[in-house]
Design a protein around this nucleic acid. Structure first.
Lengths: 365, 365
DNA sequence: CTGAAAGCGCTTACAG
DNA sequence: CTGAAAGCGCTTACAG
């Protein structure tokens, strides 16, 4: 039956791919197909319907690479996430909720979200540089911003729309969304001072993360506003783990005039603190007041319950993508400035881990 | 000097982009540039060096879309992750470690990793279908496999190399890596039985996740092997939250002959269980023995320490990408079968949450 | 060893 | 309203 040469429509079908197959099938040019599919106005309604029907039936979707090349944009947004091994180990689900929020907004604009995980052993700048040079995405969301984050300049120079989740030292000239560390510091200090505390410690992250600086500055301002001198000796760096809190307790209580309260940047430390306090026969909320940052599963079973803050992850994601859309020119920026600078307020969730001050007499170890 | 037509190097530079700019700069054809950059053998070593130097200096990276279109592959791998709001809320950092492992292997083969988060409100099949049809990535890693997961058939039909993190009901014809739930069930049951327990409950996830079925089957087998009849009334479905454990306690103790031990699929439930037991004046490890699945931060501060298992996230990532490389033909499959079926063993971490059985007389509520 | 040319699968002015 | 054609920025047989 079959001739030795491939001939006729059937055999050819296998050869044509993508839009040209559709075109052949419908007896239309690829240009018309493209216009119909992309909702261009100058297509006969009947033609458009035929095209749409056929496309659905054949499961046709335009090839991403071809479309991106022709259009000069990929229609996708990258979210760069650090694969910090410490973060990975510490039950940090911070981003899942954010992604969901980002996605919900991007979808409406036909944009895809690609999470681009930067391996722990790789340089963040180099990783981003390569992505940008290759034009893998049209726009970027950066997280974990450093105090002076060179990635910002890279993206600016490349002319890629972007928004950061977190400020940098000089937060002008680009859009960012960040947690309202100022508000957190203010309400935590306010709460502790009103409970009678004067020696209030603070923990900040190791390394060059900008929010450590922001948090410290806000804490200092909140203290001084209430006539309490800032004491640099009361600022401690910690990691994300619970064990950081364990050792912190001795540092807090071991020195000169003991600290009576502490505000934690990484709430997981509270877990270790409770443990160590218990060993010392001391009680959180009585002998040492503790306020954590984020209410998350890992600290939710502490007794007494940890006083901390609600972080609206989904809302943060929404805010990030809306700021980004404005940068991409897909949404009119609401204000006079083209840049969004948004500090997301966190609501305090009072627990029992902070209380009125009382004289502590820790056992010297 | 300049004719009315654009002429000379300078004016043109702005116009030419990418490889042709490089070609012009060096006085070579784009073909030669391409071959030099891609390490093809038939390029003069001196030429190659010139090209490589110029590329580095100009920060040239081939445009991703153009390259993908020309080559017919994107050189990137997708990792589909569900943005389950429940998972997001429950501190699930499970994937970060896995990503890092995946990345470490893919890098060596010049492959990029794109995490493709499927929004909670979107259908997983449709989401994947679109990605595949658009040829966004060359290969896929799927997670959270359902009992009968239609995504497997989709990928098979499309001829896209893939591997799943998790089995399905019929785990033939494709590669998967999964936790060794059989080993977990066996060693948990073994441990509990040797402590004298006979009424051992099990929790499984809600919904159609395959590992629930696998876990239950393995549990049943482990029991029967020891002459203990399987009792379906002792299998409970729970979610990922700590509160699931809270209510579970009453279910376990409230019925007929009380359960003396439970094996948890989601260890966070232990948090709620400890809380509820404490309210009832009962003690984990004494009045009720508990074994959790994964050792994670959220359960690490329980006292007594929860008996559970170590999950080697990074190794899992490595295994996934190696299985995938074999599918992609980038690595010879070691065995006779082209498919990898790997159950990753988990090491037991003994804690104090399980102990010898003793008669429990819970207060009736 | 290098260049000229075709082609990857789309989109988009440009004619008609 | 539709088609023919050029072009997006690469890669890769094919000549030479």
């Amino acid at each position: 039956m079959a001739a030795c040469q491939q001939a006729g429509g059937d055999e050819r079908e296998g050869v044509m791919r993508g839009i040209s197959k559709l075109a052949q099938e419908l007896g239309l040019s690829t240009g018309t197909i493209s216009r119909a599919l992309n909702g261009k106005p100058d297509v006969h309604e009947k033609t458009r319907r035929r095209v749409l029907d056929a496309a659905r039936q054949l499961g046709y979707e335009p090839n991403q690479a071809a479309r991106a090349l022709a259009r000069g944009r990929t229609q996708s947004v990258g979210f760069m996430m650090d694969l910090d091994p410490q973060a990975a180990a510490s039950g940090d689900s911070f981003f899942m909720g954010v992604f969901d929020g980002v996605h919900s907004v991007l979808m409406e604009h036909g944009l895809d979200l690609h999470v681009l995980p930067c391996p722990s052993r790789q340089d963040r700048f180099a990783y981003l540089d390569r992505l940008v040079a290759r034009r893998v995405v049209d726009a970027m969301i950066l997280s974990n911003t450093g105090t002076a984050d060179p990635r910002v300049g890279l993206l600016q120079a490349a002319g890629i729309p972007f928004v950061t989740f977190g400020r940098t030292k000089s937060p002008k000239g680009f859009s960012w969304v960040d947690l309202d560390f100022e508000g957190v510091a203010e309400s935590a200090v306010e709460r502790l001072v009103s409970l009678g505390h004067r020696r209030i410690a603070l923990t900040v992250p190791f390394g060059d993360l900008n929010f450590g600086v922001v948090f410290k500055t806000a804490y200092r301002k909140a203290l001084e506003k209430r006539g309490i001198a800032f004491d640099p000796a009361l600022v401690f760096s910690t990691g994300l783990g619970d064990e950081d809190g364990y050792y912190l307790v001795d540092e807090l209580l071991g020195g000169g005039p003991p600290v009576t309260a502490v505000i934690l940047i990484f709430e997981a430390a509270a877990i270790g603190m409770y443990r160590r306090l218990s060993e010392l026969g001391l009680k959180p909320g009585e002998d040492l007041s503790i306020i954590g940052l984020r209410d998350e599963l890992a600290v939710r079973n502490l007794a007494p319950r940890l006083t901390c803050f609600d972080v609206p992850l989904h809302d943060i994601g929404v805010a990030l993508s809306e700021a980004l859309l404005a940068q991409m020119g897909l949404r009119s920026s609401s204000g006079r400035s083209p840049f969004v600078h948004l500090r997301v307020p966190l609501g305090l969730r009072p627990g029992g881990s902070d209380g009125t001050v009382r004289s502590v007499s820790p056992k010297k170890r």
